[in-house]
């Protein structure tokens, strides 16, 4: 069972305090978008064996959303950061690179 550090309240929360929210950093497409764009936004998800970025809510705690950079194969957590972040911050990306040189996720590397 995972433990994730909530960057909002500072608690190292076990999974039962958290609610998962799926893939992070999705770009919303609304009216006016093409069918392909909307399909991609609504349905297409990364399913990596390795580095992934996921949304979590500290549901039983401070109620805030954050993003975890995590390895899906080993469950190693490279870092967590607030959901009010458009793209993975550089320090998180550096932490991943230190552990997993050559990693890639979507168009990130």
């Amino acid at each position: 069972m995972l433990i994730l550090h909530c960057p909002h309240c500072g608690v190292d929360a076990e999974e039962t305090e958290l609610a998962p929210g799926g893939e992070a950093h999705l770009k919303r497409f609304g009216p006016g978008s093409s069918d392909a764009e909307f399909e991609s936004y609504l349905f297409h998800r990364e399913n990596p064996r390795g580095v992934h970025f996921e949304r979590w809510r500290h549901a039983f705690g401070c109620g805030k959303w954050f993003i975890a950079a995590r390895a899906t194969d080993t469950l190693e957590v490279f870092g967590t950061y607030r959901a009010q972040t458009a793209a993975p911050p550089q320090d998180i990306r550096d932490a991943i690179t230190a552990k997993r040189p050559g990693w890639a996720w979507r168009d990130l590397a």
């Binding site: 309240c9 608690v11 039962t16 305090e17 549901a59 039983f60 705690g61 401070c62």
Partner: peptide, 10 residues
């Protein structure tokens, strides 16, 4: 203060 889960409730 700690906000958490008490059995099945916040």
């Amino acid at each position: 203060i700690r906000r958490t889960r008490l059995a099945q409730v916040p």
